[in-house]
Amino acid sequence: MVRGDLAVFPFLSVMQMFLTSGRAGRLNVDHIRGGQLWLERGEIVHAEAGRLRGDNALQFMASLDGGAFTFEVGQVPPTRTLSLRRDSALRRLIEDSEGWAALSRTFPDWNQRLRLSAKWNDAQPVTRTQYRVLNLVGDSANIRALLERSPESPRMTLETLRPFLLAGLVELG
Protein backbone atom coordinates (compact mmCIF):
# COMPACT_ATOMS: atom_id res chain seq x y z
CA MET A 1 0.00 0.00 0.00
CA VAL A 2 1.18 3.50 -0.87
CA ARG A 3 -0.03 6.53 1.12
CA GLY A 4 0.43 10.24 0.69
CA ASP A 5 -0.98 13.73 0.90
CA LEU A 6 -2.16 15.53 -2.23
CA ALA A 7 -1.13 18.85 -0.66
CA VAL A 8 2.47 17.57 -0.92
CA PHE A 9 2.17 15.34 -4.02
CA PRO A 10 -0.31 16.95 -6.48
CA PHE A 11 -3.06 14.74 -7.86
CA LEU A 12 -1.80 14.91 -11.46
CA SER A 13 1.71 13.88 -10.39
CA VAL A 14 0.32 10.97 -8.37
CA MET A 15 -1.81 9.85 -11.32
CA GLN A 16 1.15 10.11 -13.68
CA MET A 17 3.24 7.98 -11.33
CA PHE A 18 0.61 5.23 -10.99
CA LEU A 19 -0.37 5.20 -14.67
CA THR A 20 3.28 5.08 -15.79
CA SER A 21 4.13 2.30 -13.34
CA GLY A 22 1.50 0.07 -14.94
CA ARG A 23 0.29 -1.13 -11.55
CA ALA A 24 -3.19 -2.45 -10.97
CA GLY A 25 -5.18 -1.38 -7.95
CA ARG A 26 -7.47 1.17 -6.36
CA LEU A 27 -6.59 4.77 -5.55
CA ASN A 28 -8.71 6.12 -2.68
CA VAL A 29 -8.76 9.85 -1.98
CA ASP A 30 -10.19 11.09 1.31
CA HIS A 31 -11.43 14.63 0.60
CA ILE A 32 -14.80 16.37 0.08
CA ARG A 33 -14.05 16.08 -3.66
CA GLY A 34 -12.50 12.63 -3.35
CA GLY A 35 -13.45 9.21 -4.56
CA GLN A 36 -11.87 6.09 -5.94
CA LEU A 37 -10.10 5.22 -9.19
CA TRP A 38 -9.24 1.71 -10.35
CA LEU A 39 -6.19 1.24 -12.54
CA GLU A 40 -5.05 -1.69 -14.65
CA ARG A 41 -1.76 -1.75 -16.58
CA GLY A 42 -1.53 2.01 -17.19
CA GLU A 43 -5.25 2.50 -17.76
CA ILE A 44 -8.08 4.03 -15.72
CA VAL A 45 -10.88 1.47 -15.87
CA HIS A 46 -13.37 2.73 -13.30
CA ALA A 47 -14.09 5.80 -11.17
CA GLU A 48 -16.49 6.41 -8.29
CA ALA A 49 -17.17 9.57 -6.31
CA GLY A 50 -20.20 9.23 -4.07
CA ARG A 51 -23.13 8.49 -6.37
CA LEU A 52 -21.14 9.38 -9.50
CA ARG A 53 -19.60 6.71 -11.73
CA GLY A 54 -17.37 6.72 -14.79
CA ASP A 55 -16.74 9.99 -16.66
CA ASN A 56 -18.60 12.18 -14.16
CA ALA A 57 -16.71 10.69 -11.21
CA LEU A 58 -13.38 11.18 -12.98
CA GLN A 59 -14.27 14.80 -13.82
CA PHE A 60 -15.32 15.35 -10.21
CA MET A 61 -11.98 14.04 -8.92
CA ALA A 62 -10.01 16.16 -11.41
CA SER A 63 -10.92 19.12 -9.16
CA LEU A 64 -8.77 17.73 -6.32
CA ASP A 65 -6.25 20.05 -4.74
CA GLY A 66 -5.72 18.18 -1.48
CA GLY A 67 -6.62 15.16 0.57
CA ALA A 68 -5.01 11.97 1.77
CA PHE A 69 -4.60 9.15 -0.73
CA THR A 70 -3.92 5.44 -0.50
CA PHE A 71 -3.19 3.07 -3.35
CA GLU A 72 -4.03 -0.56 -2.73
CA VAL A 73 -2.36 -2.91 -5.17
CA GLY A 74 -4.40 -5.70 -6.72
CA GLN A 75 -7.87 -4.32 -5.97
CA VAL A 76 -10.27 -5.40 -8.73
CA PRO A 77 -12.80 -2.85 -10.02
CA PRO A 78 -16.46 -3.63 -9.27
CA THR A 79 -17.26 -2.76 -12.90
CA ARG A 80 -15.61 -1.12 -15.91
CA THR A 81 -16.92 2.34 -16.75
CA LEU A 82 -13.81 3.79 -18.39
CA SER A 83 -11.05 2.79 -20.74
CA LEU A 84 -8.47 5.57 -20.64
CA ARG A 85 -4.88 4.64 -21.46
CA ARG A 86 -2.09 6.59 -19.77
CA ASP A 87 -1.60 9.45 -22.24
CA SER A 88 -5.33 9.93 -22.87
CA ALA A 89 -6.07 9.75 -19.16
CA LEU A 90 -3.40 12.30 -18.25
CA ARG A 91 -4.44 14.66 -21.05
CA ARG A 92 -8.06 14.42 -19.90
CA LEU A 93 -7.14 15.01 -16.24
CA ILE A 94 -5.04 18.06 -17.19
CA GLU A 95 -7.87 19.53 -19.28
CA ASP A 96 -10.44 18.85 -16.56
CA SER A 97 -8.25 20.27 -13.77
CA GLU A 98 -7.68 23.45 -15.79
CA GLY A 99 -11.43 23.74 -16.31
CA TRP A 100 -11.96 23.57 -12.54
CA ALA A 101 -9.62 26.50 -11.70
CA ALA A 102 -12.17 29.34 -11.87
CA LEU A 103 -14.95 27.19 -10.44
CA SER A 104 -12.81 26.22 -7.46
CA ARG A 105 -12.28 29.90 -6.67
CA THR A 106 -16.02 30.61 -6.95
CA PHE A 107 -17.05 27.47 -5.01
CA PRO A 108 -14.08 26.88 -2.66
CA ASP A 109 -15.86 24.86 0.04
CA TRP A 110 -18.02 21.98 -1.15
CA ASN A 111 -19.27 21.44 2.39
CA GLN A 112 -21.30 24.63 2.02
CA ARG A 113 -24.93 24.63 1.03
CA LEU A 114 -26.41 26.74 -1.78
CA ARG A 115 -29.75 28.51 -1.51
CA LEU A 116 -31.79 30.94 -3.55
CA SER A 117 -31.24 34.47 -2.25
CA ALA A 118 -33.84 37.09 -1.37
CA LYS A 119 -33.13 38.64 -4.81
CA TRP A 120 -34.55 35.58 -6.54
CA ASN A 121 -38.02 35.81 -8.03
CA ASP A 122 -40.06 33.26 -9.93
CA ALA A 123 -40.14 35.49 -13.00
CA GLN A 124 -36.38 34.98 -13.48
CA PRO A 125 -35.95 33.57 -17.01
CA VAL A 126 -34.00 30.29 -17.12
CA THR A 127 -33.21 27.61 -19.68
CA ARG A 128 -34.22 23.98 -19.19
CA THR A 129 -30.70 23.05 -18.09
CA GLN A 130 -30.63 25.94 -15.65
CA TYR A 131 -34.05 24.94 -14.31
CA ARG A 132 -32.95 21.32 -13.74
CA VAL A 133 -29.83 22.46 -11.87
CA LEU A 134 -31.49 25.28 -9.93
CA ASN A 135 -34.23 22.87 -8.86
CA LEU A 136 -31.55 21.05 -6.80
CA VAL A 137 -30.54 24.20 -4.90
CA GLY A 138 -31.93 24.07 -1.38
CA ASP A 139 -32.71 20.35 -1.64
CA SER A 140 -29.10 19.28 -1.24
CA ALA A 141 -27.13 19.09 1.98
CA ASN A 142 -24.05 20.69 0.37
CA ILE A 143 -22.39 21.38 -2.99
CA ARG A 144 -20.99 17.84 -3.22
CA ALA A 145 -24.46 16.32 -2.70
CA LEU A 146 -25.90 18.71 -5.30
CA LEU A 147 -23.26 17.63 -7.83
CA GLU A 148 -23.98 13.96 -7.14
CA ARG A 149 -27.71 14.50 -7.78
CA SER A 150 -27.40 16.72 -10.84
CA PRO A 151 -28.41 15.39 -14.26
CA GLU A 152 -25.50 17.39 -15.72
CA SER A 153 -21.78 16.72 -15.39
CA PRO A 154 -20.17 18.17 -12.22
CA ARG A 155 -18.36 20.98 -14.04
CA MET A 156 -21.39 21.85 -16.17
CA THR A 157 -23.52 22.02 -13.02
CA LEU A 158 -21.23 24.53 -11.32
CA GLU A 159 -20.75 26.46 -14.57
CA THR A 160 -24.55 26.71 -14.75
CA LEU A 161 -24.80 27.96 -11.15
CA ARG A 162 -21.83 30.35 -11.30
CA PRO A 163 -23.57 33.31 -13.03
CA PHE A 164 -26.50 33.05 -10.59
CA LEU A 165 -24.08 33.11 -7.66
CA LEU A 166 -22.14 36.08 -9.09
CA ALA A 167 -25.43 37.94 -9.71
CA GLY A 168 -26.49 37.35 -6.10
CA LEU A 169 -29.49 35.20 -7.06
CA VAL A 170 -27.94 32.14 -5.42
CA GLU A 171 -25.85 32.34 -2.28
CA LEU A 172 -23.57 30.15 -0.22
CA GLY A 173 -24.67 29.51 3.29
Score class of each variant (00 low, 15 high):
residue 1 M to P: 12
residue 26 R to K: 15
residue 66 G to R: 07
residue 117 S to F: 08
residue 56 N to H: 09
residue 11 F to W: 11
residue 120 W to T: 03
residue 27 L to E: 01
residue 59 Q to K: 05
residue 167 A to G: 03
residue 153 S to W: 04
residue 15 M to F: 10
residue 58 L to N: 10
residue 99 G to A: 09
residue 36 Q to L: 14
residue 3 R to M: 15
residue 79 T to V: 11
residue 22 G to E: 01
residue 64 L to R: 04
residue 26 R to Y: 09
residue 132 R to H: 10
residue 43 E to T: 09
residue 171 E to I: 01
residue 97 S to M: 11
residue 49 A to G: 13
residue 138 G to F: 06
residue 100 W to K: 15
residue 94 I to Q: 09
residue 64 L to Q: 04
residue 149 R to E: 03
residue 170 V to H: 05
residue 53 R to T: 12
residue 124 Q to F: 04
residue 127 T to R: 00
residue 69 F to T: 09
residue 120 W to K: 04
residue 2 V to I: 12
residue 43 E to I: 02
residue 151 P to C: 07
residue 168 G to F: 10
residue 24 A to R: 00
residue 135 N to H: 09
residue 109 D to V: 15
residue 18 F to Y: 02
residue 8 V to G: 04
residue 31 H to N: 08
residue 20 T to R: 08
residue 44 I to Y: 08
residue 118 A to P: 02
residue 133 V to W: 00
residue 36 Q to C: 15
residue 130 Q to C: 01
residue 101 A to I: 15
residue 64 L to V: 02
residue 68 A to T: 14
residue 3 R to T: 15
residue 55 D to A: 09
residue 9 F to M: 11
residue 93 L to G: 02
residue 68 A to R: 15
residue 7 A to M: 04
residue 17 M to K: 15
residue 66 G to N: 03
residue 158 L to M: 14
residue 102 A to N: 05
residue 92 R to Q: 14
residue 123 A to W: 06
residue 29 V to W: 09
residue 15 M to Q: 06
residue 149 R to H: 03
residue 137 V to I: 13
residue 93 L to E: 03
residue 117 S to G: 02
residue 10 P to F: 00
residue 30 D to L: 15
residue 162 R to H: 07
residue 54 G to H: 03
residue 82 L to K: 12
residue 168 G to V: 03
residue 172 L to K: 06
residue 172 L to P: 02
residue 130 Q to I: 01
residue 67 G to H: 05
residue 173 G to I: 09
residue 42 G to L: 10
residue 60 F to T: 06
residue 13 S to H: 15
residue 60 F to N: 08
residue 158 L to R: 13
residue 57 A to V: 06
residue 7 A to C: 10
residue 51 R to M: 13
residue 148 E to C: 06
residue 37 L to N: 00
residue 89 A to W: 08
residue 88 S to V: 14
residue 120 W to E: 07
residue 88 S to A: 15
residue 160 T to E: 00
residue 9 F to D: 10
residue 92 R to P: 06
residue 142 N to P: 03
residue 151 P to I: 02
residue 142 N to Q: 04
residue 109 D to P: 04
residue 149 R to W: 08
residue 108 P to F: 14
residue 49 A to S: 15
residue 66 G to S: 05
residue 88 S to C: 13
residue 90 L to F: 14
residue 145 A to R: 14
residue 5 D to Q: 15
residue 52 L to K: 07
residue 161 L to Q: 06
residue 72 E to C: 03
residue 63 S to C: 14
residue 159 E to G: 03
residue 131 Y to D: 00
residue 28 N to P: 03
residue 158 L to A: 11
residue 165 L to P: 02
residue 62 A to R: 11
residue 131 Y to T: 00
residue 156 M to S: 15
residue 131 Y to A: 00
residue 70 T to F: 05
residue 156 M to G: 05
residue 73 V to W: 04
residue 35 G to D: 10
residue 170 V to A: 10
residue 136 L to Y: 14
residue 112 Q to I: 07
residue 26 R to S: 07
residue 77 P to E: 11
residue 123 A to F: 08
residue 161 L to T: 05
residue 50 G to P: 11
residue 146 L to V: 06
residue 89 A to D: 07
